[in-house]
Design a protein around this nucleic acid. Structure first.
Length: 427
RNA sequence: GGAGAGGUGGCAGAGUGGCCGAAUGCGCUAGAUUGCUAAUCUGGUGUCUUGGGUAACCGGGACCGAGGGUUCGAAUCCCUCCCUCUCCGCCA
């Protein structure tokens, strides 16, 4: 949610922001609605004030005076009710529109319509040069007996998978490595619910707009399966006023993530790249409304993810995501794309977002500063390890000619010391 | 799933139709006092919104889990929902 007062004050900021994000937004309609809502509510407030005064007189009135006073009150009440009926739909429309106003992107967000115009910030590591024909992760994992996509299709439909044996172990190894890495950085480990109320989806900015991407169980229970632990983690303190001394709050959580991937038919159909369910370690930062500090946090959480990739010995690049590829709430986003030999290129594995107070406003997530003043927090988040995609990178980059897979040193404590996984494959 | 109890300010806890944005206690904060710590006394201490003022500030309205309803008037009465607790049942 953006700041309505700011929109009144500087509507052009929001027009430019929406244009840069390539999101339609009728700022003039909002301004008009806002003006009329305020005008009507002023009149309602006046009426209520008069009613209060009159009500007290009724309590003290003699029986003779009473009849007339009551009659006058009834008239006023009817007037108030008429105004209320007028006001309700306007407020609803205004709120609905406000929930969709894009948060204006930061100045150093590049112009551009889609991910092809994201700007590379840096490239780290060198893609492996194989002295043999490398296998893609599906061929490799199937040959090792590590994956059963066909069975998953039978049991759960497309874009699902069974990981079996050492690949399942590798998945848990890399997740736990990422988790421990963040705990060592001072992040508080949290176990989160992955079924949330729609309010949490709205609060974090996924609804309205992202309903088609979520699995919903709301016919009976008003619950949604989250696409990321960002949703419960950021919502954890929703509706409360935090003490300044507690900030920044830094959390890390491992959760299952569920995505419907509606509208992606025929896209990335092979293997583990685009799936309906995966495990992810996510980092979330909640801090005071200080733009400079937010930027520092943004760089820090980006750095944490890069350190993980470096430890995993994986080549990657960082891109500054352009306006047209930003979500509604983010004011800036850096994606990390990890080298995936089967793609002959980089594939998105991490997404570091900075929201300013966008989520905090929706969640009612506030803090009291040293002077006792209340402000909305700033929130940020980034992936640490997203399991399915990270497995693609690990299998494909670290494969050996004989079809076995090298385990990076950082993961060996999590694989029971194993330095290599799998058995030699014969042709 | 069945039966019951309850949700009030940072916390504890009064309040069963107008005098209640809400007693009291704790906490927090400013000041006074005692040579220090502790104690004591005095004042202040919710959020949101709207109007006026450069501002300190002043006025209006809303908010006692959420949403509806009854009433001239609701924290208080009625309905629906959510949550918490206790007992029973079922179950990882």
């Amino acid at each position: 949610m953006i700041d309505l007062k700011l929109l009144r004050q500087d509507p052009d900021l929001f027009r430019r922001g929406a244009a840069k994000k390539r999101i339609a937004c009728d700022v003039d309609r909002i301004l008009a609605l806002d003006a009329s809502v305020r005008e009507i509510s002023q009149r309602m407030d006046d009426l209520r004030a008069r009613q209060k005064v009159a009500g007290k007189r009724i309590a003290e009135a003699t029986a003779a005076e009473r009849g007339d006073l009551l009659e006058a009150q009834r008239t006023q009440k009817a007037e108030l009710k008429a105004l209320e009926e007028n006001q309700g739909p306007r407020e609803k429309e205004l709120e609905g529109m406000l929930l969709r106003v894009p948060n204006p992107p930061a100045d150093d967000v590049p112009e551009g319509a889609d991910d092809s115009q994201n700007v590379e910030v840096r490239r780290v590591g060198t893609p492996p040069a194989f002295g043999f024909t490398p296998r893609d992760h599906v061929a490799l994992a199937e040959a090792q007996g590590w994956i059963d996509i066909e069975a998953a299709g039978r049991v759960s439909g497309s874009r699902n998978y069974f990981l079996i044996g050492e690949l399942s172990l590798l998945e848990h190894a890399v997740l736990r490595f990422g988790f421990d890495h963040m705990v060592a950085k001072g992040f508080t480990p949290v176990s989160v619910p992955t079924l949330v109320r729609t309010a949490a989806m709205v609060g974090t900015g996924y609804f309205p707009g992202g309903e088609d991407q979520a699995y919903r169980c709301d016919e009976r229970d008003d619950l949604c399966l989250v696409g990321t632990a960002e949703v419960p983690l950021t919502s954890l303190h929703g509706g409360s006023i935090l003490d300044y001394g507690r900030l920044p709050l830094r959390y890390v959580a491992l959760s299952s993530c569920y995505r419907r991937e509606a509208g992606t038919y025929g896209k990335d159909t092979r293997g583990l790249y685009r799936v309906h369910q995966f495990l992810k370690v996510e980092q979330v930062v909640i801090d005071s409304a200080d733009a400079e500090r937010s930027i520092e946090h943004h760089q820090a959480i980006l750095g944490h993810a890069e350190a993980v990739l470096t430890a995993l010995d994986l080549p990657y690049r960082v891109v500054n995501v352009c306006g047209g590829d930003l979500g509604q709430g983010q004011i800036q986003k850096y994606d990390i794309e990890t080298w995936m030999p089967s793609r002959g290129g980089f594939g998105e594995t991490h997404s570091a977002s900075r929201f300013h107070d966008f989520q905090a406003r929706r969640l009612g997530l506030r803090y009291r500063d040293a002077d006792g003043k209340v402000h909305f927090c700033h929130t940020l988040n980034n992936t640490v390890v997203a399991s399915a995609r990270m497995l693609i990178a690990l299998l494909e980059n670290h494969q050996l000619e004989d079809g076995r897979v090298r385990v990076p040193a950082a993961l060996q404590p999590y694989t029971g010391g194993a330095k290599v996984l799998g058995r030699p494959l014969t042709a």
